[in-house]
């Protein structure tokens, strides 16, 4: 019984992540500017990456396979989910900062830009 629950819960997480991943990839193409695409990429890495990985880790626990198989996949999936949770926001952040500071991309449609005001004040 508990195996069935684990399995179908994992499958539900996996499919939810898949749908979110496709939506994020569509959003990546619909948004016009780099700074808007940052938000779509966040959906892609958290909704489309971490949730399915946790889903796989849970799904495997309910399968009728040798225990080495089970725990090996669960361990790899959980650790990679942990690394993605830690590093993906830091990566987006440093990329956005470099793009803003090197004037590679300008945040064109923006109501206010406090960071630019700060840089102008400092110079």
């Amino acid at each position: 019984m508990i195996d069935q629950i684990l399995f179908w819960f994992g499958v539900a997480l996996l499919f939810m992540g898949g749908v979110l991943d496709v939506i994020a990839s569509v959003g990546m193409n619909r948004f016009r500017n780099f700074y808007l695409r940052l938000h779509a990429a966040t959906i892609g890495s958290i909704g489309g990456g971490v949730y399915p990985l946790v889903g796989v880790a849970i799904l495997v626990l309910g399968l009728d396979v040798p225990s080495t198989f089970k725990y090996y996949i669960t361990g790899s999936a959980l650790i990679s989910a942990l690394i993605v949770v830690l590093t993906s926001p830091a990566g987006s952040h440093i990329l956005a900062k470099a793009a803003h500071k090197s004037r590679e991309v300008l945040p064109k449609p923006a109501i206010v830009d406090r960071l630019k005001e700060k840089e102008v004040n400092e110079e």
């Binding site: 830690l86 590093t87 926001p89 830091a90 952040h93 440093i94 470099a98 500071k101």
Partner: peptide, 9 residues
């Protein structure tokens, strides 16, 4: 240019 977030992570 490397901020506190990158260092800690």
């Amino acid at each position: 240019g490397m901020t506190l977030i990158v260092r800690v992570i």
